[in-house]
Design a protein around this nucleic acid. Sequence first.
DNA 1: ACCTGAACACCGTTCAAGT
DNA 2: ACCTGAACACCGTTCAAGT
Lengths: 191, 191
Amino acid sequence: MSLNRQEVVRAAVEVLDQYGLEDLTMRRLAGLLGVKAGALYWHVENKQTLLALVSDEILASPTGNTPDRDVADRNQGLAEGIRAWAGSFRTALLRHRDGAELVSSTLPVRLGSVDPGEPVRELLGRCGLSGQQRYCSRALVHFVLGHVTEEQTRSQLHELGVVGEFDARGEEEDFDRGLELLVTGVCALVR
Amino acid sequence: MSLNRQEVVRAAVEVLDQYGLEDLTMRRLAGLLGVKAGALYWHVENKQTLLALVSDEILASPTGNTPDRDVADRNQGLAEGIRAWAGSFRTALLRHRDGAELVSSTLPVRLGSVDPGEPVRELLGRCGLSGQQRYCSRALVHFVLGHVTEEQTRSQLHELGVVGEFDARGEEEDFDRGLELLVTGVCALVR
DNA sequence: ACCTGAACACCGTTCAAGT
DNA sequence: ACCTGAACACCGTTCAAGT
């Protein structure tokens, strides 16, 4: 029974969840798969593309946070659409240890095939903001990734006993209120 | 003539600018200083704190972008104050190769002593938004770091001939317009 | 087709021992 | 006080050779 790309990626997600991004090494992954490190290079070109595949897996997983399909068709719909997108994006990242850091590191390299900003650009297009899609989606994606990266880093530092408090409720509040700043800004663009 | 902490940090900034964050290794840094790698541990406790010191150096450097002192005292002053802060923050990051990535990685660990969000919290306080300081400054810092990280990564990929176009003018436009979304959102909080 | 063995060129960090 | 030498326990990647 031989390996294939999918199994390698799924095992990588397991290593990520158990040991974190820092300890997601080719040798450790090979160990979990009962194989030597060199064998992995038959299935993936290098570590960077493997990380891009893991990133795609994280972003492609459904979150149960999907918006009502027909809510998003005017101004109130724009705000709700952005909130729903941001919520499910954040949820997807939080599902895996170091999810936000991994996606952040992998995104600008453009090796992955899933673009988390795509749904929000589509939404903006439907709301008559075709000329504002690029910079609005960039701002929104950066906000979510930055916020969740900080959340996950702090929660891990807390678990290691390094830092004082970690208030999950407060983190979500800050996320929602910070997002609302962008929602207000985007909605103000609509005539 | 023996080394000291300051010289180590300054040499680290040189290595960063010439070789990038990935190649800022203790061995390479030691080489530049004419010393063996182990010697560095007499001056800094470990690599992570060294990176925090480098991050502080980057953030502490003046940018010539400082705002007019007495513009920032009402609503128009709030918007202008945020723009000035964001501009000088971005400029400081752009002064060094991988500046944004370094600061991002170092910030949540809280080993550094310079907090880039501090000036903006002070500004918000002066404008009657004391209850909104934390989440507003977080959103602003995440936006700037995320945007500049993407700018620097893309510009490097472009130099390596990996990716198509890199339009510095367009990047700055996206930055300004994205920032304006947050400026609008923050200003809407003022009664 | 898929994997092993073994190497190459690196890492960060520690620590006895030197001066 | 400050640094060397040498080691420890790792990395990602390549590639002849095996099956």
